[in-house]
């Protein structure tokens, strides 16, 4: 879960270090205090969300996240997460490498693709945009955007007119 979050946060334009996963047992109050204090100070250093990310428009970041939440709800990426967890569990392999690689290869692509799709829909419902503009706005390669656009247009959800895409 944590690794998926980290990789996907990065994809959404959020510094993954803003999320931390720490362990403190019930008996480790001093450790807890140390962790929390250190973490708050780290986030203070990074500044408000968006600042350390160098994202000039906070709105854009929030859009990535909104689409991200939808993506994390979608069945495909969730199945990918479940399947990977099941596999690692079965193999008893909880090494950092296996998790990082697994998430990178299996889960992140599914989440990313779903996020891009959601974001295209969100953007186009607000107005027509060119492929270049879309690709810049959703933080994705043109090819990735094109793939979704072609599927969506086949379904009749979107249409292209004079180089600009809009909802059909």
């Amino acid at each position: 879960m944590a690794e998926t979050c980290r990789q996907f946060l990065k994809d959404c334009g959020v510094d993954p270090e803003r999320m931390s996963l720490e362990w403190a047992s019930a008996a480790e109050a001093p450790r807890f205090v140390e962790l929390i204090t250190g973490y708050v100070s780290k986030i203070k250093d990074k500044g408000p969300l968006g600042e350390a990310e160098g994202e000039e428009e906070r709105e854009k970041l929030i859009r990535h996240l909104k689409a991200g939440v939808k993506a994390a709800q979608a069945r495909k990426p969730r199945t990918a997460l479940g399947t990977l967890s099941k596999k690692l569990h079965k193999e008893g392999n909880f090494s950092k490498e296996a998790i990082t690689e697994g998430v990178k290869a299996k889960i992140l692509p599914a989440l990313r693709s779903e996020r891009i799709l959601q974001e295209i829909k969100m953007l186009l419902s607000e107005g027509a945009l060119s492929l270049d503009e879309l690709s810049k706005e959703v933080k994705a390669e043109k090819e990735e955007v094109e793939k979704h656009l072609s599927t969506l247009s086949k379904k009749g959800t979107v249409k292209e007119e004079t180089g600009k895409w809009s909802m059909a």
Binding site: M1, Q73, R75, R78, T79, L81, G82, S85
Partner: peptide
């Protein structure tokens, strides 16, 4: 239910929520 401890791993990993 008699064995469940309520940890929620199942919920957070269910593909269909």
């Amino acid at each position: 239910t008699a064995s469940c401890k309520g940890c929620g791993i199942c919920a957070s990993h269910c593909p269909t929520l």
